[in-house]
Nucleic acid binder design. Structure first.
Lengths: 127, 127
DNA sequence: CGTCAATGTTGACACACATCGATATGCGGC
DNA sequence: GCCGCATATCGATGTGTGTCAACATTGACG
């Protein structure tokens, strides 16, 4: 397949090769950066970071919009927009069940991000 | 003192308490998000992510601007700007040695980010 | 002390983005 | 078939941000 983790992690037209890059091991390439940055951009927003955390920590790693809305002072379209961004970044999946739409966290995405900051021996902290 | 990692991680007026939040364990609070988001914003840019990776992977985890410039098609002021953003986010330290300025990666920051994506038992991937 | 090289600061500009209100779509119940 | 609810899309708007050219600052070296 390719690397170690992630198959079909990043959504549109990006090779799965460029993932799980240990950021401190060697300089990340331009292509790798281009692949990872959209994911980082997606969570580099208070509302979206909280949304992702809410979905992740929710029962079964999934939550419907109606579960999420009450946690915010934002309008429903805004939440919907943020969820779309998270989805397009490959961080959450969408699943429609009747009237409700459930968003499901993608563990591979979290693993990919965690892998980014995986420390080499030299960079380990907190002895 | 407080948590487990990080003392003086985030730079200006933010309690070190709000750090190392396992994103998938429980919903991140608004305050915690506000603390972490600036770091994520800082690396949610191709140039800055590459800069951080270059510094991190450079010998000794540090590099001067003159080492970094040749890797980019961007102007020197732009690189300087990006480095400032990384510095203000608490991801790199500045150290002036003669004419040159060295930027040093902060392992605590990387650990904090890694901690964000640390998976609970339930969300663990890749066996 | 004057000049040069390395880096940072400022102001300006174009573009992206977060947010909202209004509206559309799609499903369930009557 | 119609109405109501849950969610998405659209258009508009204000704010943020990446980038540069021009200038300022600081240290090295004659």
């Amino acid at each position: 397949m390719s690397n170690s983790c992630s198959d079909g992690l990043v959504p549109p037209g990006a090779d799965p090769l460029t993932c799980c890059v240990p950021l401190s091991r060697e300089p990340i390439t331009v292509d790798q950066a281009a692949t990872v940055v959209p994911m980082l951009k997606a969570i580099a927003d208070p509302a979206r970071l909280r949304l992702l955390s809410l979905v992740l920590s929710h029962e079964g790693g999934e939550a419907c919009v109606c579960d999420l809305l009450p946690h915010f002072d934002l309008s429903q379209p805004t939440i919907s927009h943020h969820l779309k961004v998270l989805h397009e970044a490959g961080l959450v999946d969408r699943e429609k069940r009747g009237t409700w739409v459930y968003y499901i966290a993608r563990p591979e995405a979290m693993a990919a991000l965690a892998g980014l900051f995986a420390a080499d021996a030299r960079t380990t902290v907190d002895a």
